[in-house]
Design a protein around this nucleic acid. Structure first.
Length: 645
RNA sequence: GCCGAUGUAGCUCAGAGGUAGAGCACUUCCUUGGUAAGGAAGAGGUCACGGGUUCAAUUCCCGUCAUUGGCUCCA
């Protein structure tokens, strides 16, 4: 007998060689019906794997993350099987489970897999799933494994196996299909009842642009058809929040082919919203001791040669601007730091002057790859809410922490609770991507780790995500479709001060090198607004929204009264517009609701006679009658609440 | 940049080898209405751009540009 310890601490005694399924059966039949995967001593296994020693066992159903993973990973096997049958001769590579579903990368050879083939693939998948074939894991020697794939001519699998050790190689069989696989499957294919091929895309072998391009087929599967339908509905709803759609509908921004790819045009409502965001941050920065600076949109090429940016990005950037003067070259500003370094140098600094904090809403231009452009989240011209802090080494940690406070202030005031703080460090293997000494990097990375310590929970460390001149703390937020975007960023930099030979005089009367902190709480106004739109589905906080009030006269007779009311509300700093169209009030209400205007005031005979306001709230309906003053209080209270969350 | 998809009126979209259609928006008129779409008439398109095939192309083919789902990249 062996002792099986369950997550709740309960211990079961079962015969040696029992499986996770036996454990489930010993608990309840219902559980046994739903259990699809298990973890034995932290290793994901099949529910049919015999357990030979005392062990901690966790049972997984589709409702938990590990269960989904096993389910989708197994689905990837079935997908691969279906693809092999439909496209003979394709070569399989890898097929993992992902956050929502799974994919399989194949070298499709002569075949092209198109959207119109999806139905065919789904049908074949379901046909194979219905065979209820068991997933069976078996150990294979390295020699045998290599032999199989060499015979098939599958260089990808050969490469994978060559990097594995003999004795740890397993194949998974189901029906007539076999794949190299580490394990972690559901019992049989029949559990998968619904599948949707989501899309096909190109993907590079081993994520390397230089290597072969494979075809990646994305899919998602479920144990019930109804779950698939619900998932697709959810996706449809998420699309309604897309900032590109809402940005157009709410008249915030647009693009023009004539102006150029990735160069957003801010419309009046969008520009006003943006100005409010800027004012909000400027206020916080004044309080935090930042000093405003303004720098030009171009700079001498030498400036970027000095900073190292030219060497790193010069070839892939907007190319230099020439002048009538032979040999003179300017670059469109791709970042503000070099300019700010020169401002620091413009006068001698004492240790008493530090930290110096230069802030600028600086518009920069980067020639992003055309395939990368995406609405407002990835553009070629954008405005950073940039600042550079020049401080003494002993001030770095404290300054860094203060910057974190500003980032929190921004995220909290705008209702972002669901963000990830990512510490972006150097690539452990490839140090050639970075400039600067080992010692400085070590110091910079440690400074971030120390500053974050005890200040932010749930941070993740990502190696290889640092900037080329220093490590970063990035604040990541997801968009409506679950794609992750970097918003705020804070970076510690020992390198640019060296390249620009920045100095201050210390208390010891010697010259010392300051440390630089780059930071942008929004990241860029463009991306921030994009993510904010998706976050609030276009229902902006009241202080930020373009129009707070729509004033809706019942008939044209009251247009003038409505205009007077708007004027008096302006005196309370409330902004809005009068809908003086020749339409019924029902129509005006509908249009204001669609435009997501937070408050509507209906003005007719009654209101004019009693000098009152009938207030309707977006999404809620009629609130009743108020005086100007009372209404202004409602608005102001709501705005106050926006900042006190 | 790479692989796939898309491009028809201001917007959302339908359409067919014989030079285009709907709804909304817009203009004018009627209506002056009380909490999510009042009625009528009108105007609006080089069917992204450039080539090719064809008696004939917006439709089929090729290229370019843009958008888009991914990959790669992101100072």
């Amino acid at each position: 007998m062996i002792k099986i310890t369950l997550p709740d601490g309960a211990v079961k005694e079962l015969p040696k060689g029992s499986t996770a399924m036996d454990v489930a059966l010993s608990i309840s039949e219902g559980l046994a019906r739903n259990v699809i995967s298990a973890k034995v001593n932290d290793k994901t296994v099949e529910v049919t794997t015999p357990i030979t020693t005392d062990a901690n066992v966790t049972l997984h159903t589709f409702n938990d993350a590990d269960g989904k993973k096993a389910f989708w990973h197994s689905s990837a096997h079935i997908l691969a099987q279906a693809l092999e049958k439909l496209y003979p001769g394709i070569k399989l590579t890898i097929g993992p489970a992902i956050e929502n579903g799974f994919y399989y990368d194949v070298d499709s050879g002569e075949h092209t897999i198109r959207e119109e083939d999806f139905k065919k693939i789904e049908d074949k998948f379901l046909e194979l799933a219905r065979e209820k074939a068991d997933f069976k894991l078996r150990e294979v020697s390295k020699a045998d494994a290599l032999a199989k794939y060499k015979e098939e001519g599958n260089e990808y699998k050969v490469e994978l196996i060559e990097n594995l050790n003999d004795g740890e190689i397993t194949f998974c069989d189901h029906s007539d299909f076999t794949d190299l696989c580490r394990g972690g499957h559901i019992p049989n294919t029949g559990i998968v009842k619904a599948i949707k091929v989501m899309n096909v895309a190109g993907a590079y072998w081993r994520a390397d642009q230089e290597k072969a391009q494979l075809v990646r087929v994305y899919g998602i599967s479920f144990p019930k058809q109804k779950m698939l339908t619900e998932y697709l509905e959810l996706l449809e709803q998420a699309k309604q929040r897309d900032h590109r759609k809402l940005g157009k509908e709410l008249e915030l921004f647009t693009f023009s082919e004539k102006v150029g790819q990735g160069l957003p045009l801010w419309l009046p409502k969008g520009a006003m919203l943006r100005e409010r965001l800027e004012a909000f941050l400027k206020k916080a920065q004044v309080q935090a001791g930042y000093l405003p600076v303004v720098t030009p949109h171009i700079g001498h090429k030498d400036l970027y040669v000095t900073s190292g940016h030219y060497e790193k990005y010069g070839a892939d950037s907007f190319q230099p601007i020439l002048t009538p003067h032979e040999g003179e070259e300017f670059l469109l500003k791709p970042m503000n730091c070099p300019h700010h370094c020169e401002i620091f140098k413009s006068s001698p600094k004492s240790y008493k002057d530090l930290p110096v904090r230069y802030a600028e809403f600086g518009t920069v231009y980067r020639y992003e790859q055309s395939g990368e452009l995406h609405g407002l989240t990835r553009v070629r011209g954008f405005t950073q809410d940039d600042a550079h802090l020049f401080c003494r080494p002993d001030q770095v940690e404290d300054e860094f922490r203060k910057v974190i406070d500003i980032v929190f202030h921004v995220l909290n005031s705008l209702g972002f609770e669901d963000y990830t703080a990512q510490i972006s460090l150097r690539d452990k293997e490839d140090r050639s991507k970075y400039i600067g000494s080992e010692e400085n990097w070590e110091k910079a990375e440690q400074a971030i780790i120390n500053a974050v310590e005890g200040k932010i929970e749930n941070t993740v460390i990502e190696y290889g995500e640092a900037a080329f001149y220093g490590p970063k703390l990035d604040f990541m937020v997801k968009d409506a479709l679950g794609r992750s975007w970097q918003l705020g960023t804070i970076q510690v930099d020992y390198n640019l001060p060296e390249r620009f030979e920045l100095e201050y005089k210390g208390s010891d009367n010697e010259m010392h090198r300051p440390v630089m902190i780059h930071r942008a709480p929004f990241g860029s106004l463009e991306r921030f607004v994009a993510v904010l739109i998706e976050h609030c589905a276009g229902n902006f906080p009241l202080w930020l929204t373009p129009d707070q009030v729509a004033i809706l006269p019942i008939s044209e007779k009251y247009n003038e009264n409505a205009q007077n009311i708007l004027n008096s509300l302006n005196n309370y700093d409330i902004r809005g517009f009068v809908d003086d169209r020749n339409e019924k009030v029902g129509r005006k209400i509908r249009d204001a609701e669609v435009k997501k205007v937070p408050y509507m005031l209906i003005i007719g005979e009654k209101e004019v006679e009693t000098n009152s306001l009938s207030v309707r709230k977006h999404g809620e309906g009629d609130l009743g009658t108020f005086t100007d003053k009372e209404f202004a209080d409602i608005i102001n209270k709501e705005i106050e609440n926006n900042f006190n969350n």
